[in-house]
C-alpha cells in the first residue's frame, strides 16, 4: 500500500495525552513526514492495561470495547508505546472476538515497529549530536520482539536502535545491562515502591556510567518513572521519547 493511501489512526496513551503532549505531537509529525495521512480519533481514552495488570481485567472490558469502536475503521493504528500496543494485541481476548476486534488487535502497531516493518523507513533527515542511551522497554522488547532479548540465543537485532542509527551525528552508547527492566511496571511502581525506585536508580546509573547525555526509549511510562528519579536526584541526564529524536527535536 502506498503511504498516502493508508488510513492511519494515531493512538495516544492516556498518560501521554495528559502529561506528555509533546510526544504525541512528535509522533504525529514524524508520521506525517513519511507521507502518511494520520487521524486522531478524539474520543479515545485508554487501552485498559492499568486495570488488567492490577488483576481487574473485567473493569477494563468497556474501555477495550471503546478502543475498538474508536479505531475499527482504520488500516493501521499506531501509537508511541510498546506496552499499550501489546495490551491491545494480547489482552483484548476477553471481549467477544468480532471482526472489528480481530482487526484492531492485528493492526495496532508500536511506532518504531510501524516505521520499520510497514513504512520501511531508511533514513531520517535530522541530526542529534549527543551521546544517547536507549532504554528497551520490556513489553516492546520481550512482548513484541522488537529486539533480540539478552536471554535468548540468536541473531542480534533491535528495531529502535536501527532507527536511531539513521539519525545524523548521534552517538549510541552501550549499556552494561542492555535490556534490564527499569522497574515502572504500572501499579507496581507504587505497590512495590522500594524495589521499583531501586530498579530505576540502577538503570539510570548504567546509562550515566556509560556516558549518556540523553536517555531515550519507546515507552513514556518507563521514561516518566526514570525522569521522576532523575529530577528528584537532580541528575544530569535528559529524558526524551524516541519519537522526539526521530522528529528532529533538539535538547
Amino acid at each position: 500500500m502506498k503511504h498516502s493511501a493508508m488510513k492511519v489512526a494515531l493512538f495516544i496513551p492516556c498518560y501521554v495525552d495528559q502529561f506528555y503532549p509533546q510526544v504525541g505531537i512528535a509522533t504525529l509529525e514524524l508520521l506525517e513526514k513519511q507521507g502518511v495521512e494520520v487521524h486522531f480519533p478524539t474520543d479515545q481514552t485508554c487501552c485498559g492495561q492499568p486495570m488488567a495488570n492490577s488483576g481487574c481485567e473485567d473493569q477494563g472490558q468497556e474501555t477495550a470495547k471503546l478502543f475498538v469502536e474508536n479505531f475499527k475503521d482504520y488500516d493501521y493504528i499506531v501509537g508511541p508505546t510498546g506496552s499499550c500496543v501489546l495490551h491491545v494485541r494480547e489482552h483484548f481476548n476477553k471481549i467477544p472476538q468480532t471482526e472489528a476486534v480481530k482487526k484492531v488487535r492485528a493492526k495496532t502497531y508500536e511506532l518504531c515497529e510501524f516505521l520499520t516493518d510497514v513504512l520501511k523507513v531508511h533514513s531520517f533527515d535530522v541530526s542529534f549530536p549527543y551521546k544517547v542511551g536507549l532504554h528497551l522497554s520490556c513489553h516492546g522488547q520481550r512482548g513484541m520482539r522488537m529486539a533480540q532479548s539478552s536471554e535468548l540465543v540468536g541473531q542480534d537485532f533491535s528495531k529502535m536502535r536501527s532507527l536511531l542509527a539513521m539519525v545524523k551525528d548521534i552517538q549510541l552508547i552501550d549499556l552494561d545491562r542492555k535490556d534490564e527492566c527499569c522497574g515502572f511496571g504500572g501499579t507496581f511502581a507504587v505497590a512495590e515502591e522500594a524495589v521499583s525506585v531501586k530498579m530505576g536508580k540502577d538503570r539510570i546509573a548504567d546509562h550515566k556510567k556509560n556516558g549518556a547525555q540523553v536517555l531515550t526509549g519507546g515507552d513514556m511510562s518507563c521514561l516518566m518513572h526514570m525522569e521522576g528519579i532523575i529530577k528528584r536526584k537532580k541528575e544530569d541526564v535528559k529524558v526524551m521519547h524516541i519519537a522526539e529524536i526521530l522528529n528532529g527535536k533538539t535538547v
Binding site: 495516544i12 501521554v16 495525552d17 502529561f19 504525541g24 504525529l28 525506585v197 525522569e227 521522576g228 528528584r232
Partner: peptide, 26 residues
Amino acid sequence: NAWGKQRDLPEPPKESFRDWYIKNRK
C-alpha cells in the same frame, strides 16, 4: 503519594495532546 516518595511527578501541561490536536489539525 507513594509515587512521589523518591520520584517527581511529570510537569502537568495546560493542554492535553487532544486539546493541541483540535486546535492545530482539526
